[in-house]
Design a binder for these strands. Structure first.
Length: 479
RNA sequence: GGCGGCGUACCCAAGUGGCAAGGGAGCAGUCUGCAAAACUGCCAUCCAGCGGUUCGAAUCCGCUCGCCGCCUCCA
C-alpha cells in the first residue's frame, strides 16, 4: 500500500507518486526572520519534519529545502526601529529560529536557502518573465501580470473578477491591474539593494520562493508545503510566476498545508497581543510535550493551544517514559533489541497504515499509548503470577516505540534524560529535595507518619510528587 | 458577498459505509502505613439537528443551526 496525501490543489486525497520514482523534491516556506518565531511556525516546521522523516523512513530519497525570507519590508522596518542593519537583524533571528528548531528536535532540511543568496536566480527568472510578456517594468519596479494566465486562482479557488471587485482602490495607480504583484521593487536610499537590469532594488516576496525552488530543487517539484494562510496569495502567485517562467505544469505536484494554532480559541495576532513565542512555551513545558501536543491532532486541523492541553500532553509524555523506565528496570534485556521482523510485519502494520493515510500522527500516537498500556499490563501480570515472562512482547513493544520515534521525533530518549529535563524546573534544588526525602524516610521508619506526610504534602505544594517503591523513593515535577 | 473547513463523552482527539482508538479528568477496586504510580472495572446504544440513499452511515447526499479560516502582511 502506498502513501496518500491530501492535495490542496485538487482538494482530494491522492496517491503519492513522485515524478521521479523513489525520489522526492520537497519545498516548505520558512519564516520571515524579523522576530522570534511563534508556536505556529513550530507547528509548520514539526509537521513537515515528520513528513520528511517518514518519506525517508519509507525509503524515498528526499531533497528537502526550507527557506529563510531574509529581505522584506517587515525586516527593514524593524531594523530601522532598532537602528541596526537589516542583514544583522535577519541573521539574529535566523539564529534564534535555528535554536528553537533544535530545541523542538526538528531535523535540519537538506537545503536552507536565503532569499539574499538567490538574487541572481531571482533576477534571471524576472527577466525571463518580462521576455515572455508576463511581467512589465515601471520605473524600476517589475510587476507580474496576473491576467495573462487563464488558470490563475486554481489553487485557492478564486476568481480574478471577484478578487478584482474586492481589491483595494488606489494601491498603485500605475499597475496594469490592481492584482498584479511586485517581482522586483526599486529600493529607497539606505535600504538593502542589489544591482539589476531595472536599477538598484530588491526582490518581491513571492518570486524568491519560486527562484529558490528552481535554484535548489528544479523546475518541477513533488511537494510544496506551508501554512494554510499562504494558499492565497503567496502560493497562488508562486504557481503563476513559476509556470509562466518555465512553461511547465505543474510547478508542484502536491500542495500540503498545515492548519493554524489558535490560542485559547482565538487566532494569534498582533492586535490581540497573543503571539506565543516558541521559547516562552519551552519555559513552561518540556520540548517533547510541545511536540506531542503538535502531533496529537492531524496536521491539517486547527489546534487550540491552552494551558490544559499542554498539561495533558505533558502527563501523557510522563506516562510514556515512566513505562519505559519500568521496562528498563524490570526487563533490562528488552532494551537490547535491535531489529525485529515479526514486530514490523505484525504490530507495526497499523502504524504504517495511519502514516500512509496523509500522515495521521494522531492515530499513531493513539496506537503507541495502547502499547504503553499493554506493556504495563504484561509487567503487572508477570509480577502477580510470579513468573517473569513477557520479555519477547516487551522487546517488541520497545522496538515499536523506537521505530515510530524515528519519524515522529518523539519517544526516542532515555527516561533519565527526559526526567532530568523535566525535573530541572523543580521549585527546590535537588539536594534539598533529596534531604527532605531522607528526613521523611527516617520518619517513616520510626512510624512517624504524621511527620512523613507533612513533608510529602509540603513538597506537593511546591509541585513535587513523591513515589515510594520497594527500591526507594523517587520524585518528579508535577504536570 | 466569494472560496474552504469544522461540529465525536466533562476536556483534548482518532475513526470517512459493517458492532465508537487513545490521552487527561472523575468514580469504584487491587497495591500501599496512607498516598503516588501502575493495573482492573465504570464513564458516548451514540457521533450538532432534520430528512434522504443503503441490507447497513458518525462516515455518502440534501437542508437547517452553530463555529472557524482565507479573500490585506501572516506558519
Amino acid at each position: 500500500m502506498g502513501i496518500k496525501v491530501y492535495n490542496s490543489l485538487t482538494r482530494k486525497k491522492e496517491d503519492f507518486v513522485p515524478t521521479a520514482e523513489g525520489r522526492v523534491l520537497m519545498y516548505v516556506c520558512g519564516p520571515t526572520v524579523y522576530a522570534l518565531s511563534h508556536i505556529g511556525h513550530a507547528r509548520s516546521a514539526v509537521s513537515f519534519d515528520v513528513i520528511y522523516k517518514y518519506l525517508k523512513y519509507k525509503g524515498f530519497k528526499v531533497k528537502y529545502a526550507r527557506n529563510y525570507t531574509d529581505v522584506d519590508d517587515k525586516i527593514i522596518n524593524r531594523a530601522n526601529e532598532e537602528g541596526v542593519g537589516a542583514k544583522d537583524l535577519a541573521e539574529r533571528y535566523i539564529k534564534a529560529f535555528d535554536e528553537d528548531m533544535e530545541a523542538l528536535r526538528v531535523e535540519l532540511p537538506d537545503i536552507r536557502p536565503k532569499a539574499t543568496e538567490t538574487i541572481g536566480r531571482i533576477i534571471e527568472v524576472t527577466e525571463g518573465l518580462i521576455k515572455r510578456g508576463y511581467a512589465y517594468e515601471l520605473d524600476g519596479d517589475v510587476y507580474y501580470s496576473v491576467r495573462l494566465k487563464k488558470d490563475y486562482g486554481k489553487l485557492s479557488g478564486k476568481n480574478i473578477d471577484e478578487l478584482e471587485s474586492g481589491a483595494r482602490v488606489g494601491v498603485d495607480e500605475r499597475k496594469k491591474d490592481p492584482l498584479d504583484f511586485a517581482l522586483w521593487k526599486s529600493s529607497k536610499p539606505g535600504e538593502p539593494s542589489w544591482d539589476s537590469p531595472w536599477g538598484k532594488g530588491r526582490p518581491g516576496w513571492h518570486i524568491e520562493c519560486s527562484a529558490m525552488c528552481m535554484e535548489w530543487l528544479g523546475e518541477t517539484i513533488d511537494i510544496h508545503g506551508g501554512g494554510k494562510d499562504l494558499i492565497f496569495p503567496h502560493h497562488e502567485n508562486e504557481i503563476a510566476q513559476s509556470e509562466a517562467a518555465t512553461g511547465k505544469t505543474p510547478y508542484a505536484k502536491y500542495w500540503l498545508h498545515n492548519g493554524f494554532v489558535n490560542i485559547e480559541r482565538e487566532k494569534m495576532s498582533k492586535s490581540l497581543g497573543n503571539i506565543l513565542n516558541i521559547r516562552d512555551v519551552l519555559k513552561d513545558h518540556t520540548s517533547e510535550a510541545v511536540r506531542l501536543f503538535l502531533l496529537s491532532s492531524h496536521y491539517r486541523s486547527p489546534i487550540d493551544y491552552s494551558k490544559d492541553s499542554l498539561k495533558d500532553a505533558e502527563a501523557a509524555m510522563d506516562r510514556f517514559y515512566k513505562t519505559v523506565q519500568r521496562i528498563g528496570a524490570e526487563y533490562p534485556d528488552a532494551l537490547k533489541i535491535e531489529f525485529c521482523v515479526p514486530c514490523i510485519e505484525d504490530r507495526f502494520q497499523p502504524i504504517f497504515e495511519a502514516m500512509d493515510d496523509d500522515f495521521n500522527t494522531a492515530e499513531v500516537i493513539g496506537i503507541i499509548f495502547k502499547e504503553v498500556n499493554r506493556a504495563n499490563r504484561i509487567m503487572d501480570e508477570a509480577k502477580a503470577s510470579g513468573k517473569p515472562s513477557g520479555l519477547v512482547d516487551l522487546s517488541c513493544i520497545i522496538f515499536v516505540f523506537r521505530e515510530a520515534g524515528k519519524f515522529l521525533g518523539l519517544f526516542t530518549r532515555n527516561p533519565e534524560e527526559y526526567f532530568s529535563e523535566k525535573n530541572s524546573r523543580a521549585a527546590l534544588p535537588p539536594e534539598e529535595i533529596e534531604r527532605l526525602i531522607k528526613e521523611r524516610n527516617d520518619a517513616r521508619k520510626n512510624k512517624d507518619f504524621k511527620k512523613s506526610d507533612e513533608i510529602r504534602d509540603g513538597l506537593l505544594q511546591k509541585g513535587i510528587v513523591l513515589e515510594d517503591s520497594p527500591k526507594g523513593t523517587t520524585w518528579s515535577v508535577k504536570g
